[in-house]
Design a protein around this nucleic acid. Structure first.
Lengths: 335, 335
DNA sequence: CTGAAAGCGCTTACAG
DNA sequence: CTGAAAGCGCTTACAG
């Protein structure tokens, strides 16, 4: 293994000087610098990141804390994870995946000194991970929000997204619009659900209709259940907005199985998902594509800015989903 | 920050002794051990992983090298990544995501000393990453295989998988069975495709029919293209085996759009995908579920065994996909 | 069974 | 502009 010592010897300087040119932390005479750079090149030297981390007290490693995603057929998740990995690499950081299950693992993360900061996915309204993070003093950025709006976060702008979805449906004449969300399995659930619901209430308020909110599991079975509930209990609804990626396919299938058609009898918008997933469904769904990769990069940037002391780094960013018209929205048909 | 020095002081021992109990590397008197453990507990001490890494020349970090997965609507990918993360954590290792694009990044990885070993996803038949890895001496495990079968790998047992798919279809009377694979976009392509094709040829050989192989993009559009090709050029086929996750939905849609039905006119098995994805499609596809999480864990275990010098660690493991019957396979109908 | 000490490969005040 | 040296927090022969 070639070390800084080897480079220094070959260039006839001290290792301190080598370090200075590598880090650009101090002025070095041009000829000296040239000699050192030549030596680095010739030896194909690359700084040991572990030693650097220990000496500088900065590992340049970020942790991505996520719940168990293994079972989720969640197309946005992979975009998110990959976006974060790319974003980190582009700024010279590494990203470690951290499946947080228990307190012990959280301690290991916080006290182990492996990471300079953490990114949190799937933030709950009341999130014990966030509390521990705050208590520990480790810098972090949230994807999603807790009750406490003061913490640094990036999030989907659900208000704008739902607003646009409703406007799109209204432009086709729809006035009875149901919302289908994710059923939280124990715990307070992601803040997302709460925000989506209130955005929905605000958006349909001008229509003067009662809100119809159906929460189901994020699975095909959940989607079928939503369709049955919709048909049986809310036949007045001519449109539905889904914010439940995993349920979208099941909903479409069951609506058809019930002898109704999309968009003939029901117009559907699936929000916060991917266009690829929309394309898989029949009919091709009109979706509002989640800015997953973009959000991940922003979260990474916010965290690194914080770590590197960039002034005026924006603590909060909201991005709406993008409407991608498919074939699942049509005019209201009089029956 | 509380260090080993603090613990040693509180327990009235040297830091060496603290290190011995932490690592279990040397016999320590029971009372001494108890004192040290008490001190650790009281101070809530946790070993600094960076210092440990530097001193022991082992970081206990593994890299997961993957191509750009951002754009893929690949449901097995997330299972794979998460399986690897969990597997690593369970053995006390961390996993960093490494999007390998260029040579410079590869050098940084290899010479930086951050990781003890690497896991490679999406291995190509002829893979420059593998060559560099071999040359560098960094331990690794492949997911998938190259030309060279001597390297340590885990992989899906495509021969057994395709064999079972064909057997399943034959039990319904099918004898004209097409194969739909992934179109490699430049380069030699994943070894997977080659292996799948030869497994298919072997499996249908007893049927005495010409092989029908259709390679399309792994997208809904690709699936549609496959359906059209099948209908137009191979009307004799009564069944198809897909090994192209992203194309499965498009295929089903286009078959129906062409006025043919699944499984009435065409039986379909989608291999190497997830049951969740099969459930999303209409009709619910019979799938052969990829053992993605299991494979990831095995690869992690194989790599760690190698790192820790476990004798007789199996260098190669093959696991077949699991048949999950859906509604897309039926008897041959005489026309 | 325990400790003193060297060393892992860097960074970073401090001197000159 | 450059260097000698301390130090980051551990592990690990080596002595005793």
């Amino acid at each position: 293994m070639v070390t800084m010592r080897d480079v220094a010897a070959r260039a006839n300087v001290s290792i301190a000087t080598v370090s200075f040119v590598l880090n650009g932390t101090k002025r070095v005479a041009p000829e000296t610098r040239a000699r050192i750079e030549a030596a680095i090149e010739e030896l194909n030297y690359r700084r040991n990141v572990v030693a650097r981390a220990l000496a500088s007290s900065r590992t340049r490693i970020l942790a991505l804390l996520h719940p168990d995603l293994e079972s989720r057929a969640n197309a946005t998740v992979i975009q998110f994870v990959m976006g974060a990995a790319h974003g980190a690499r582009e700024r010279g950081y590494d990203l470690v995946l951290w499946p947080v299950n228990d307190d012990e693992q959280m301690s290991h993360l916080l006290a182990g000194g492996l990471v300079d900061g953490a990114l949190l996915m799937e933030v709950q309204i009341r999130d014990s991970r966030v509390e521990r993070l705050v208590a520990s003093g480790l810098p972090f950025a949230l994807i999603g929000r807790t009750e406490n709006d003061d913490l640094p976060y990036v999030d989907i702008d659900f208000a704008a997204t739902i607003q646009e979805a409703v406007a799109h449906l209204r432009s086709y004449g729809h006035e009875r619009i149901a919302l289908i969300t994710d059923r939280a399995r124990g715990g307070p659930g992601p803040g997302r659900i709460m925000r989506v619901e209130s955005a929905y209430r605000d958006a349909i308020a001008p229509l003067g209709a009662q809100p119809v909110i159906i929460a189901v599991d994020s699975t095909s079975a959940g989607g079928r259940e939503a369709a049955r509930t919709l048909c049986a209990e809310h036949p007045e609804c001519t449109a539905a907005i889904l914010v439940n990626e995993g349920a979208s396919a099941g909903l479409a299938k069951e609506i058809r199985a019930a002898g109704r058609s999309i968009p003939g009898d029901l117009s559907v918008i699936s929000a916060s998902t991917t266009r690829e997933l929309g394309e898989m469904i029949e009919p091709e769904l009109t979706v509002m594509a989640a800015p997953a990769a973009e959000l991940a990069r922003l979260a990474v940037d916010a965290l690194i800015d914080q770590l590197e002391g960039v002034p005026d780094a924006p603590p909060h960013t909201l991005i709406p989903c993008t409407l991608v018209p498919g074939e699942s929205v049509g005019p209201v048909t009089v029956s």
